[in-house]
Amino acid sequence: MTNTAIHPGLYDPYNPTPALNGTRCEKCKVNYFPPLGMGCERCGNPDLRSVTLSTNGTVHSAAMVHLHGGKDIDAPFVVVEIALDDGPLIRGLLANNTNDDVIGARVSGQWMKRVDDDGNVSVEPRFITDAESGESL
């Protein structure tokens, strides 16, 4: 049985805990996620290096989505904007689909697994608050 990343290239699905594949400009000392591959947005430096970013951060904003046209996920779900401790402001989903009153909360990524009818496993990091971190996903 293999693990497949729902978002290929953004993380290693075999890591025991989620970490994000970013890039870093050493001139600006800035990390990017999603990874900027071809040059730094601030200075144009083309020499970016790959870095691994922690999923730990603080929720900047959150919104419960009630209407979603795609088939990849059923609404409602909660989109969060997270200021990562490693720098970037990213967007992801909360593991908990019932509460978007989490601005300011500390969060970290946990694997969420989907198993299809053939037993194939696909994974993505979803975020949980520190208060929920003892719970299993």
């Binding site: 978002h7 953004l10 989505v65 990849d72 989109v79 990213i90 992801g92 989903l93 993505e124």
Partner: peptide
């Protein structure tokens, strides 16, 4: 460009 939100962030 891919991110963790993808098409879920309309």
């Amino acid at each position: 460009i891919r991110d963790l939100g993808g098409s879920r962030v309309a």
